[in-house]
Amino acid sequence: MNNQLTLSRALLSMPISATVPSQDEINGLRNFDSQATGAIYDRYFPEVFRFVCYRLNDEILAEDIASDVFVRLLEATRNGRGPNSNLRAWLLSTASHVITDHLRKIYRRPTEALSDDHPDPQENPLRDVEQREREIHIKAALQTLTVEQQNVIALRFGQGFSLEETAQALKKNVNAIKQLQFRALAALNRQMVEIP
């Protein structure tokens, strides 16, 4: 797990300039050009997937939602509502909306949770049981926070975004992110205490 974390942190430490799409790619996206669309997907899919995965703790669901976010990008572009420059913020914001919609549907039509007897296809046998329980605990607590609080924690601690990157992705200023971050962590701490 440590190796996986190290790799993920290394990926996350990529400079922002390396993740900014060129104007050619934006123009190619508007023409639904395969090459430009594929390049944008390759660049942003890991971030979106990790973001969704952090928020939901479900890789299969994260795959569906992350893919859906990119299809929504094409649809928005077709309807003239696509992003002009801040593609990353648009994708993460859309991912957040899709997650919220998904959770709202679940609350309206609760489904029977899988029992512990069902094998987890994504289970990593090397993962420490105690660590896994802690993750389940913190993810459960996370889902009780507001969407903005969840997003700031997912980006700052799940994605490793800087304050500036988080502010850009959430379209807020840095001071607002600092404040939101403190409140989110405080709320998360309270929820973790309250949730057994």
Binding site: L11, P46, F49, C53, V71, L188
Partner: peptide
């Protein structure tokens, strides 16, 4: 604790499937 949560890199087959759909 929030940082210690494993950050999953998408598996290659997941990324391929999503790209093909897109």
């Amino acid at each position: 604790q929030a940082r210690a949560v494993a950050v999953n890199t998408p598996p290659a087959n997941v990324q391929r499937r999503g790209k093909a759909r897109l």
